[in-house]
Simulated assay, not measured.
Amino acid sequence: MDYPHILSPVLNFLHCPTPQAWIERARDPANLPLLLTDHLVCELKAAQTAMLLVRKYVADKAGADALLAWLKPYEAFTFREGPEPDFVALHKQLAKSAMPKTDDPWGQQLIDSMVLLIKEELHHFWQVREAMVARNIPYVKITASRYAKGMLSEVRTHEPLTLIDKLICGAYIEARSCERFAALAPHLDADLQKFYLSLLRSEARHYQDYLALAQQVSQEDISARVRFFGEVEAALITSPDETFRFHSGVPV
């Protein structure tokens, strides 16, 4: 895989690299259980975000219900300490599921992009869980970082500006994930390193999909708004942070 080619636009898009202090904390093997657990939850939250966008803005009831059903077993395991699902069976089921449809070209593009993203994030969720099981890391509930909440707190409150801002936030979250996977990979064991590097291509595509959808919704150029959220995101990444998580700032 051509990592520099994939990473170059991501690094140009983000306003700062991951601080070295975060990498130093993350490379400590004692923090691996926490990082993998948070990574697991982040994959599900990314899928939930995509699902909510489709349900709110385009899906019919049948399509919306189908998306909800996809996520239910993952949510039950993650948030309600439900049984460990059969991820292999779930993944096969996802591949064959019927998709929401719409006559609106932008809406169909949103559906196509987000449904692919949901499928990929749920597959990654299963892969992270496999990595945890292989290392005897139990799943234990943890608190969320301030990161996504900090970004979404700046979202404007009337449409279509709300949708545009949410899509831009989605782009930054995916781009930062991509950058962090690459920053962390050299410090992991061979299997995890291979897994993290395998995630780069999809995360890089996700951020570009979000940006393209945001520009298509807007009747004006969104570059000033993209810059604004780039500054918000960089402030969260470079400022002191008492909670150490996958998207946290500089460890206190």
Score class of each variant (00 low, 15 high):
residue 45 K to M: 09
residue 45 K to H: 08
residue 46 A to N: 11
residue 47 A to T: 13
residue 47 A to R: 02
residue 48 Q to R: 07
residue 48 Q to F: 02
residue 49 T to L: 10
residue 49 T to E: 05
residue 49 T to R: 04
residue 50 A to T: 12
residue 51 M to A: 15
residue 51 M to P: 04
residue 52 L to Y: 10
residue 52 L to M: 06
residue 52 L to R: 07
residue 52 L to I: 10
residue 52 L to P: 09
residue 52 L to E: 11
residue 52 L to K: 05
residue 53 L to N: 10
residue 53 L to S: 14
residue 53 L to T: 14
residue 53 L to R: 10
residue 54 V to H: 02
residue 55 R to F: 09
residue 55 R to I: 15
residue 57 Y to D: 05
residue 57 Y to S: 06
residue 59 A to G: 13
residue 59 A to K: 06
residue 60 D to P: 08
residue 61 K to N: 15
residue 61 K to H: 15
residue 62 A to S: 14
residue 62 A to F: 09
residue 63 G to I: 04
residue 63 G to L: 07
residue 63 G to D: 06
residue 64 A to G: 15
residue 65 D to W: 01
residue 65 D to S: 15
residue 66 A to V: 00
residue 66 A to L: 05
residue 69 A to F: 02
residue 69 A to P: 04
residue 70 W to A: 07
residue 70 W to E: 05
residue 71 L to A: 06
residue 73 P to M: 02
residue 73 P to F: 05
residue 73 P to A: 06
residue 73 P to C: 04
residue 74 Y to Q: 06
residue 76 A to G: 06
residue 77 F to W: 15
residue 78 T to N: 02
residue 79 F to V: 01
residue 79 F to N: 13
residue 81 E to N: 15
residue 82 G to V: 01
residue 82 G to T: 00
residue 83 P to F: 08
residue 83 P to C: 07
residue 85 P to F: 08
residue 86 D to E: 05
residue 87 F to G: 01
residue 89 A to L: 11
residue 90 L to Y: 03
residue 91 H to Y: 12
residue 91 H to R: 13
residue 92 K to F: 12
residue 95 A to Q: 08
residue 95 A to C: 03
residue 95 A to G: 08
residue 96 K to C: 08
residue 96 K to R: 13
residue 96 K to V: 09
residue 96 K to S: 15
residue 97 S to N: 06
residue 97 S to E: 03
residue 97 S to T: 05
residue 98 A to I: 02
residue 98 A to T: 12
residue 99 M to F: 10
residue 99 M to W: 12
residue 100 P to F: 06
residue 100 P to T: 07
residue 101 K to F: 03
residue 101 K to Q: 12
residue 101 K to T: 09
residue 102 T to P: 00
residue 102 T to M: 02
residue 103 D to W: 07
residue 105 P to C: 01
residue 106 W to V: 11
residue 106 W to R: 04
residue 106 W to I: 14
residue 108 Q to I: 03
residue 109 Q to Y: 03
residue 110 L to A: 08
residue 110 L to M: 09
residue 110 L to D: 06
residue 111 I to L: 04
residue 111 I to V: 14
residue 111 I to E: 07
residue 112 D to G: 00
residue 113 S to W: 12
residue 114 M to G: 05
residue 115 V to R: 02
residue 115 V to K: 00
residue 115 V to C: 03
residue 115 V to T: 08
residue 116 L to I: 13
residue 116 L to F: 08
residue 117 L to D: 09
residue 117 L to A: 13
residue 117 L to W: 03
residue 118 I to N: 00
residue 118 I to C: 00
residue 119 K to F: 00
residue 120 E to Q: 14
